[in-house]
Design a protein around this nucleic acid. Structure first.
Lengths: 174, 174
DNA sequence: ACCAGAAAGTCTCATATGAGACCATCACGA
DNA sequence: TCGTGATGGTCTCATATGAGACTTTCTGGT
């Protein structure tokens, strides 16, 4: 149990006593939308990932690398970095660890010997299959409060946001 | 510069060469919506927070604590935990560090001597004012691709999701 | 009034992570 | 062809974090 991580149902005495519940902080900071995204995503992602870390002995970069390889075999470390939000040093460590555990294998890229293409092994696929269902199910639970139409609209807006990331993410000044 | 963190504009040779760009991974994993949320949020949050960490010498729990105190003075550590996604040990360390730097002060709660209410000092407010504008501006840039109506709808959906978090977040089985 | 259990906060220890140096390979202009 | 800079990947070091034990204080039932 992680009491410090669990959101209150609003039944805690301290919260009831306050006129405006503390939960208002979710929309009350100066970062209205970003804070909400972080809040929801944290409660989705952290418990799931922690559990995978503990039960299967994987680090976050390792978990993410397997997810990438399930999507496309043959990707390289730097490509995983590009879309995962992990630093290349950590992905590199993760890949080395995954290979040591025989969950993936590496092959030098023919056209560029700096690169190495990554492939899942059967064991890797099996391990992936052990943790993905819980993540999927938790995502479903997270979205259960939306109607079908709302879910589609939410997805559409996220797509739009994701597509525009390159236009601002590189702005180091911000 | 963090090259490994920067999303490609799609102009990288390796990506162009592929029929389906690797960027399709954003919507191509088995976690359609959750992955997109993480992707967008990572590119918003990580660079900003890293910068604050480096330039102002604050840790993430410290940054978050100041954001909470700006929203409401007098909150306690456990309340910050509840809505921040940080473990109580880290918030505790953050609070101790913030007090040592004279950015906040603590006062024992009259009605419950286990608790301590937190308050910003003038220095804390000043430091907060130094990093919040960049976060706000980056949030604005992230959302710039949405129309006014889309932005409102996105916010509404996030509100709905956030409000329902307590209904599923505690399900440890997932 | 008491006791068992919960809650607030702090601490310790092991580990994952961030920053950046480093090496090898590649790309491209002179 | 050479040489300069960029890129892919690995390594080292310091630090932030996660897990969980621990203390003190509060709560609720008997």
């Amino acid at each position: 149990m992680r009491p410090s991580r669990k959101p209150s149902n609003g039944t805690t005495k301290s919260l009831q006593a306050e006129r405006e519940p503390l939960a208002a902080v979710i929309g009350g900071t100066e970062l209205q939308i970003a804070y909400r995204m972080g809040y929801v995503l944290n409660f989705y992602r952290e418990p799931s990932f922690r559990r995978i870390e503990m039960e299967l002995g994987l680090t976050r970069p390792e978990i993410v690398t397997l997810i990438f390889l399930n999507f496309r075999e043959g990707v390289t470390a730097s490509e995983i970095c590009e879309f995962s939000g992990h630093l290349k040093a950590n992905i590199s460590r993760g890949i080395i660890a995954l290979e040591k555990k025989k969950l993936i294998r590496r092959a030098a890229d023919k056209t560029d010997s700096r690169r190495q293409q990554l492939f899942m092994t059967a064991a890797g696929r099996a391990l992936y299959a052990r943790y993905i269902p819980a993540l999927r199910e938790r995502e479903r639970a997270m979205l259960a409060c939306l109607t079908r139409a709302e879910r589609n609209e939410f997805e559409r807006l996220l797509d739009k946001l994701a597509a525009h990331v390159p236009q601002w993410a590189a702005l180091d000044e911000l």
